[in-house]
């Protein structure tokens, strides 16, 4: 049994089809990079997996997580899975944090929801998680508000929230796009290290080939709502079959990056 099996996933807004028959599969502990240009449907695919699509979206197909079908489940039946089975890291670390809630309460929220921890116990656990994601002075930082943190620190908080309830799958939707390059590298290292430690699977979304190649050995390329190419990262990079993938590789080369250096 695969951890996550997405088949023929289709998302429509009125009569525009924005995700068209996507098929993805992830085993426990595996990593998959999902790449594609802006507007190709990566985020909607990720949200559809956990039933988080915005109102107005009509979704068909199949999403099986740990063997059971999620599509068509009622909100009440799918909410227990969010955070505990599937954790999310979002693109914009500032807007994804509640500006009026202390960092500790936000990191501890999944634990309060899924483990029934008291406010106090959750704050203690939040400080430990803050330390795990490399935040300085965790005891102090759990009492801070999001605006008092740097962009990189905020994304560390985002990662702490995603791993708090120890989900078997982590979905990271362009977690480094909003950060500057040096911080990007740190966050990538942190994310991959934690996923490794936890033994979670990772669905890593990006529009940057160089970034995806650092994270995962398997890659799916999306374009206009479809997965146009899928396979081991190195194969796709060395011998891109789709013209669109060739463009991506050429663009990555142009920024002086060499696929041969990719860790395998």
């Amino acid at each position: 049994m695969r951890l996550l099996e997405v088949e023929d996933l289709t998302v429509r807004f009125g009569d525009s089809t924005v995700v068209a028959g996507v098929r993805l599969s992830l085993g426990a502990g595996e990593r998959l990079g999902l790449i594609g240009e802006s507007g190709s449907g990566k985020t909607l695919t990720a949200l559809a997996v956990a039933g988080l699509l915005p109102p107005g979206a009509a979704v068909t197909g199949s999403v099986r997580f740990e063997g059971s079908e999620l599509l068509g489940r009622r909100e009440r039946a799918i909410a227990p899975l969010r955070g505990a089975g599937i954790g999310f890291v979002f693109q914009e670390p500032l807007t994804a944090l509640n500006p009026l809630m202390r960092i500790g309460a936000q990191i501890g929220e999944p634990l309060r929801i899924h483990r029934g921890l008291s406010r106090r116990a959750a704050r203690g656990a939040a400080a430990e998680l803050a330390a795990r994601v490399g935040l300085p002075d965790p005891e102090r930082i759990v009492r801070a508000y999001p605006h008092q943190l740097s962009g990189g620190q905020r994304q560390r908080v985002g990662i702490a929230i995603a791993i708090a309830a120890r989900p078997a799958l982590i979905v990271a939707d362009e977690p480094t796009t909003a950060l500057d390059v040096t911080v990007q590298a740190e966050i990538l290292r942190l994310l991959t290290a934690l996923v490794e430690e936890e033994g979670s699977a990772l669905l890593f979304i990006s529009h940057d080939l160089a970034v995806v190649a650092q994270v995962s050995r398997r890659l799916a390329v999306m374009r206009a709502g479809r997965v146009v190419e899928e396979g081991p990262t190195l194969d796709v990079l060395r011998d891109p079959r789709e013209p669109y993938t060739r463009q991506l590789v050429a663009a990555a080369r142009a920024t002086s990056w060499n696929p041969q250096e990719t860790p395998s």
């Binding site: 909100e75 909410a79 979002f90 944090l97 929801i113």
Partner: peptide
């Protein structure tokens, strides 16, 4: 419609929370 509401739902928060 804020991102942090989506993020909270992604963490498992229900309507009341």
């Amino acid at each position: 419609a804020a991102d942090y509401v989506l993020a909270a739902r992604a963490g498992g928060a229900g309507t009341w929370r």
